[in-house]
Simulated assay, not measured.
Amino acid sequence: MSVKVEQALISPRYLAGPGDPAWVTAALHAGAGWSHGHDPLMPRVILTSPDQKSMLRLEPHPNEPWWHLSHRDGRTGSVWNASFDGGTPVELIASVTDALTDPGYNARAISAPYQPLWDAGWNSIRNGEFRSPDGRVRGEHFNLSGRRNWRITASLDEDDPVWKAWFSSGTPRVLVAAFMQALADPEPVRRSHEQTVGLSRRRITLHWQEWPAESVARTLPERIERLAARRASPPPPAPPTPPPAPRRAR
Protein backbone atom coordinates (compact mmCIF):
# COMPACT_ATOMS: atom_id res chain seq x y z
CA MET A 1 0.00 0.00 0.00
CA SER A 2 1.51 3.30 -1.11
CA VAL A 3 1.95 6.12 1.38
CA LYS A 4 -0.01 9.28 0.59
CA VAL A 5 0.50 12.86 1.68
CA GLU A 6 -1.83 15.83 1.62
CA GLN A 7 -1.05 18.90 -0.42
CA ALA A 8 -3.06 22.05 -0.90
CA LEU A 9 -4.10 23.25 -4.34
CA ILE A 10 -4.23 27.04 -4.12
CA SER A 11 -5.54 29.71 -6.44
CA PRO A 12 -5.01 32.43 -7.37
CA ARG A 13 -1.38 31.46 -7.53
CA TYR A 14 -0.12 34.97 -6.85
CA LEU A 15 -1.49 34.72 -3.28
CA ALA A 16 -0.29 31.15 -2.65
CA GLY A 17 2.76 32.09 -0.58
CA PRO A 18 6.42 31.69 -1.54
CA GLY A 19 6.73 27.88 -1.66
CA ASP A 20 10.06 26.04 -1.82
CA PRO A 21 13.05 28.14 -3.03
CA ALA A 22 14.65 24.96 -4.43
CA TRP A 23 12.08 25.15 -7.22
CA VAL A 24 14.27 27.96 -8.53
CA THR A 25 17.74 27.40 -7.05
CA ALA A 26 18.06 23.62 -7.48
CA ALA A 27 16.62 23.87 -10.97
CA LEU A 28 19.17 26.50 -11.99
CA HIS A 29 22.09 24.56 -10.54
CA ALA A 30 21.26 20.97 -11.47
CA GLY A 31 19.08 21.62 -14.50
CA ALA A 32 20.65 24.67 -16.15
CA GLY A 33 24.29 24.32 -15.09
CA TRP A 34 24.58 27.46 -12.96
CA SER A 35 27.44 27.34 -10.46
CA HIS A 36 26.98 28.31 -6.84
CA GLY A 37 29.20 29.78 -4.18
CA HIS A 38 29.37 28.26 -0.73
CA ASP A 39 29.51 30.40 2.39
CA PRO A 40 28.13 28.44 5.37
CA LEU A 41 28.32 31.51 7.60
CA MET A 42 25.93 33.55 5.44
CA PRO A 43 22.20 32.80 4.93
CA ARG A 44 22.33 33.37 1.19
CA VAL A 45 22.59 31.58 -2.13
CA ILE A 46 24.49 32.96 -5.11
CA LEU A 47 24.21 31.28 -8.50
CA THR A 48 26.06 32.26 -11.67
CA SER A 49 25.25 31.31 -15.25
CA PRO A 50 27.77 29.24 -17.25
CA ASP A 51 28.66 32.26 -19.41
CA GLN A 52 29.19 34.41 -16.27
CA LYS A 53 26.77 37.05 -17.57
CA SER A 54 23.83 36.40 -15.23
CA MET A 55 23.66 36.01 -11.48
CA LEU A 56 20.88 35.14 -9.05
CA ARG A 57 21.24 36.09 -5.40
CA LEU A 58 18.82 34.88 -2.74
CA GLU A 59 19.40 36.69 0.53
CA PRO A 60 16.68 37.00 3.20
CA HIS A 61 16.22 40.57 4.39
CA PRO A 62 13.36 41.99 6.47
CA ASN A 63 12.88 45.21 4.50
CA GLU A 64 14.29 44.51 1.05
CA PRO A 65 13.70 42.05 -1.81
CA TRP A 66 15.04 38.57 -1.17
CA TRP A 67 15.65 37.62 -4.81
CA HIS A 68 17.93 39.57 -7.14
CA LEU A 69 18.52 38.56 -10.75
CA SER A 70 21.09 40.59 -12.68
CA HIS A 71 22.68 40.43 -16.11
CA ARG A 72 25.68 42.18 -17.63
CA ASP A 73 27.08 41.50 -21.08
CA GLY A 74 30.33 43.37 -21.67
CA ARG A 75 30.29 42.55 -25.38
CA THR A 76 26.86 43.98 -26.16
CA GLY A 77 26.58 46.42 -23.25
CA SER A 78 23.32 44.82 -22.15
CA VAL A 79 22.64 45.47 -18.44
CA TRP A 80 19.41 44.75 -16.58
CA ASN A 81 18.14 43.45 -13.26
CA ALA A 82 15.00 42.10 -11.62
CA SER A 83 14.05 41.67 -7.97
CA PHE A 84 11.35 39.84 -6.07
CA ASP A 85 10.20 40.06 -2.46
CA GLY A 86 10.39 37.00 -0.22
CA GLY A 87 6.63 36.43 -0.47
CA THR A 88 6.69 36.07 -4.26
CA PRO A 89 5.56 32.56 -5.29
CA VAL A 90 8.53 30.59 -6.59
CA GLU A 91 6.51 29.55 -9.65
CA LEU A 92 6.49 33.18 -10.78
CA ILE A 93 10.22 33.62 -10.24
CA ALA A 94 10.91 30.30 -11.95
CA SER A 95 8.99 31.46 -15.02
CA VAL A 96 11.66 34.16 -15.47
CA THR A 97 14.69 31.97 -14.79
CA ASP A 98 13.27 29.19 -16.98
CA ALA A 99 12.83 31.65 -19.83
CA LEU A 100 16.33 33.06 -19.31
CA THR A 101 17.93 29.61 -19.41
CA ASP A 102 15.96 28.50 -22.47
CA PRO A 103 18.65 27.93 -25.12
CA GLY A 104 16.52 29.73 -27.71
CA TYR A 105 15.11 32.60 -25.67
CA ASN A 106 16.86 35.25 -27.76
CA ALA A 107 15.10 33.94 -30.86
CA ARG A 108 11.63 34.78 -29.52
CA ALA A 109 10.15 38.09 -30.60
CA ILE A 110 7.76 39.68 -28.09
CA SER A 111 5.95 42.88 -29.01
CA ALA A 112 3.69 43.28 -25.94
CA PRO A 113 4.89 41.60 -22.71
CA TYR A 114 1.52 42.16 -21.06
CA GLN A 115 -0.44 40.40 -23.84
CA PRO A 116 -0.89 37.25 -21.67
CA LEU A 117 -2.75 39.43 -19.15
CA TRP A 118 -5.14 40.84 -21.72
CA ASP A 119 -5.73 37.32 -23.07
CA ALA A 120 -6.65 36.22 -19.53
CA GLY A 121 -9.15 39.03 -19.07
CA TRP A 122 -7.09 41.33 -16.88
CA ASN A 123 -8.04 44.99 -16.84
CA SER A 124 -6.22 48.02 -18.14
CA ILE A 125 -6.46 51.06 -15.89
CA ARG A 126 -4.65 53.46 -18.21
CA ASN A 127 -1.67 53.40 -20.50
CA GLY A 128 1.07 51.24 -18.99
CA GLU A 129 -0.95 50.09 -15.98
CA PHE A 130 -2.93 46.92 -15.36
CA ARG A 131 -4.69 45.01 -12.60
CA SER A 132 -6.05 41.53 -11.98
CA PRO A 133 -9.82 40.93 -12.15
CA ASP A 134 -9.96 40.63 -8.34
CA GLY A 135 -7.92 43.82 -7.90
CA ARG A 136 -5.26 42.03 -5.81
CA VAL A 137 -2.45 42.54 -8.34
CA ARG A 138 -1.52 45.85 -9.86
CA GLY A 139 1.29 46.58 -12.26
CA GLU A 140 2.74 49.51 -14.10
CA HIS A 141 5.23 50.19 -16.87
CA PHE A 142 6.52 53.55 -15.75
CA ASN A 143 9.20 56.07 -16.59
CA LEU A 144 12.04 56.61 -14.12
CA SER A 145 14.87 58.98 -15.07
CA GLY A 146 14.08 58.48 -18.74
CA ARG A 147 13.96 54.70 -18.50
CA ARG A 148 10.92 52.43 -18.60
CA ASN A 149 10.69 49.98 -15.71
CA TRP A 150 8.11 47.42 -14.61
CA ARG A 151 6.67 47.16 -11.10
CA ILE A 152 4.09 44.57 -10.02
CA THR A 153 2.50 44.43 -6.55
CA ALA A 154 0.23 41.78 -5.04
CA SER A 155 -1.83 42.87 -2.04
CA LEU A 156 -4.41 41.39 0.30
CA ASP A 157 -5.94 44.83 0.83
CA GLU A 158 -5.27 48.32 -0.45
CA ASP A 159 -2.37 49.00 1.96
CA ASP A 160 -1.29 45.43 2.69
CA PRO A 161 1.22 44.32 0.01
CA VAL A 162 2.19 40.65 0.00
CA TRP A 163 5.03 40.96 -2.49
CA LYS A 164 6.51 43.23 -5.13
CA ALA A 165 8.43 42.44 -8.29
CA TRP A 166 10.61 44.82 -10.28
CA PHE A 167 12.08 44.62 -13.78
CA SER A 168 14.51 47.32 -14.81
CA SER A 169 14.67 49.01 -18.16
CA GLY A 170 16.48 46.75 -20.60
CA THR A 171 15.07 43.50 -19.22
CA PRO A 172 14.34 41.32 -22.28
CA ARG A 173 10.66 41.41 -23.12
CA VAL A 174 10.54 37.64 -23.31
CA LEU A 175 11.38 37.45 -19.58
CA VAL A 176 8.73 40.00 -18.60
CA ALA A 177 6.20 38.19 -20.79
CA ALA A 178 7.05 34.88 -19.12
CA PHE A 179 6.38 36.43 -15.71
CA MET A 180 3.06 37.86 -16.94
CA GLN A 181 2.08 34.50 -18.37
CA ALA A 182 2.76 32.76 -15.05
CA LEU A 183 0.99 35.55 -13.17
CA ALA A 184 -2.22 35.11 -15.17
CA ASP A 185 -2.11 31.29 -15.28
CA PRO A 186 -5.33 29.99 -13.64
CA GLU A 187 -3.73 26.64 -12.77
CA PRO A 188 -3.53 26.20 -8.95
CA VAL A 189 -0.13 25.63 -7.35
CA ARG A 190 0.69 23.02 -4.73
CA ARG A 191 1.74 23.75 -1.19
CA SER A 192 2.53 21.53 1.78
CA HIS A 193 0.84 21.97 5.16
CA GLU A 194 3.66 24.07 6.60
CA GLN A 195 3.70 26.29 3.49
CA THR A 196 0.07 27.29 4.01
CA VAL A 197 0.66 28.74 7.48
CA GLY A 198 -0.17 32.43 7.52
CA LEU A 199 -2.05 32.51 4.21
CA SER A 200 -5.20 34.60 4.09
CA ARG A 201 -7.95 32.02 3.62
CA ARG A 202 -10.42 34.83 2.82
CA ARG A 203 -8.55 35.71 -0.37
CA ILE A 204 -7.71 32.29 -1.79
CA THR A 205 -9.35 29.05 -2.81
CA LEU A 206 -7.69 26.09 -1.11
CA HIS A 207 -8.46 22.41 -1.64
CA TRP A 208 -6.61 19.58 0.08
CA GLN A 209 -5.81 16.56 -2.03
CA GLU A 210 -3.93 13.33 -1.35
CA TRP A 211 -0.99 12.39 -3.56
CA PRO A 212 1.34 9.38 -3.48
CA ALA A 213 4.38 10.37 -1.43
CA GLU A 214 6.67 9.05 -4.15
CA SER A 215 4.98 11.27 -6.72
CA VAL A 216 5.38 14.36 -4.52
CA ALA A 217 9.05 13.55 -3.91
CA ARG A 218 9.65 13.23 -7.66
CA THR A 219 8.17 16.60 -8.61
CA LEU A 220 11.38 18.64 -8.28
CA PRO A 221 13.73 15.95 -9.72
CA GLU A 222 11.44 15.64 -12.75
CA ARG A 223 11.52 19.40 -13.23
CA ILE A 224 15.32 19.35 -13.09
CA GLU A 225 15.45 16.50 -15.61
CA ARG A 226 13.25 18.43 -18.05
CA LEU A 227 15.46 21.51 -17.81
CA ALA A 228 18.62 19.44 -18.23
CA ALA A 229 17.15 17.74 -21.31
CA ARG A 230 16.22 21.13 -22.76
CA ARG A 231 19.74 22.40 -22.16
CA ALA A 232 21.19 19.39 -23.98
CA SER A 233 19.01 20.00 -27.04
CA PRO A 234 20.27 22.31 -29.81
CA PRO A 235 18.65 25.76 -29.68
CA PRO A 236 16.16 26.66 -32.40
CA PRO A 237 17.55 28.73 -35.27
CA ALA A 238 17.36 32.48 -34.98
CA PRO A 239 14.70 34.16 -37.14
CA PRO A 240 16.06 34.88 -40.63
CA THR A 241 17.41 38.33 -41.35
CA PRO A 242 15.23 40.10 -43.90
CA PRO A 243 16.98 40.71 -47.21
CA PRO A 244 18.13 44.27 -47.93
CA ALA A 245 15.75 46.50 -49.84
CA PRO A 246 16.55 46.65 -53.55
CA ARG A 247 18.36 49.77 -54.65
CA ARG A 248 16.55 52.17 -56.92
CA ALA A 249 18.06 52.62 -60.33
CA ARG A 250 19.25 56.13 -60.94
Rank of each mutant, 00 (worst) to 15 (best):
K4V: 12
E6C: 06
L9P: 03
A16R: 02
P18Q: 09
P18H: 08
P21M: 02
W23P: 00
V24S: 02
T25M: 03
A27H: 09
G31C: 06
G31E: 00
G33N: 03
G33T: 02
L41M: 14
P43K: 05
T48S: 12
L56T: 04
L58T: 09
E59P: 02
N63G: 12
N63V: 11
H71M: 12
D73Q: 11
D73R: 09
G77T: 13
V79A: 09
S83N: 06
F84D: 01
V90N: 08
S95N: 06
T97V: 03
N106A: 13
N106V: 10
R108C: 03
S111Y: 07
S111N: 13
P113R: 01
Y114D: 15
L117W: 00
W118H: 12
N127Y: 07
E129G: 00
E140R: 11
N143G: 04
R147G: 03
N149P: 00
W150E: 06
T153Q: 06
D157V: 07
E158P: 00
P161W: 05
W163A: 01
A165F: 02
S168L: 07
R173T: 05
F179L: 13
P186K: 13
P186L: 14
R201F: 12
I204D: 04
W208A: 06
P212F: 04
V216S: 09
R218N: 14
L220D: 02
E222F: 10
R223L: 14
A228P: 00
A229C: 02
R231A: 15
R231D: 02
P237M: 04
R248S: 12
